[in-house]
Amino acid sequence: MNTLFFRYVPGNSIVHRLDPRVKIAGMLIASISIFISSSLREMAVVALVFFLLALISSISVRVILSAVRPMLMFLGIIFILQLFLTEGNPLFSLVGLDATYEGLALGVLMSMRFLFLLMFASLLTATTAPSLMTTGIEKMLRPLPLKRLGISSFDLATMMFLSLHFVPLLYGSFSHLRDAQVSRGLDMARNPFKAVYSLSVPMVRTAFISAEEVAVAMESRCYQGVNRSSLNEPVMQKNDLAALLVFGIVMFLLV
């Protein structure tokens, strides 16, 4: 069972203790760097930065792997599409399709981008308590003129928090369901179509039911969506700012 999927794993490292806003901004910087890096060498730098951060935060490899593993198929599809659909010097050919050197390079690059995006995201969720994440997002959004669009930064932050909250929850119901169907003799490898059908129907149902339950629970506790305060107000400190600055400069210089 994979219960670590994008879950918060409490700890006491420097990364854990950083202001959530710094980490979210860092995540944005990392995403931008990942998408503008266009060579394998730049990717290697991103990888290096990631592993350093993961090391500092003393997050176990399992946590990162559990975020990546379910997505491997998706990454594989991206890779194969790039490999065969890019024009260039032929590498080999398969059932009338030509794989190219350029496709190989691009495929590796694209799948690496998604891989590192996932890995940075799981580092963020693993080191940041969900409630702090919400407060962080909310505070970062507050200066924006969202009111004119008819929503408050609180609403938006709460929506994001709920989405974050639902990821491990839905993954939990998914593993529970998979166990149940496998116990009824489902062989996922031999019968992928049956697997998708017998898992997706109850999964969608469960998702809707639990979303409704959360909505009812929030309403019955008088959730209004405006001016909520939080138990742990993050206070930006000098070292938080310094960390962000250093991280930003490092990423841009290297990539």
Partner: peptide, 26 residues
């Protein structure tokens, strides 16, 4: 055979018969 907690979540068949037949078919 194991029946887990909240087993009503695992239903997916079009009909009751189809759902119950899932296990024996497998």
């Amino acid at each position: 055979g194991v029946l887990f907690q909240f087993p009503q979540q695992q239903l997916f068949g079009r009909t009751v018969f189809e759902d119950v037949a899932f296990g024996p078919r497998n």
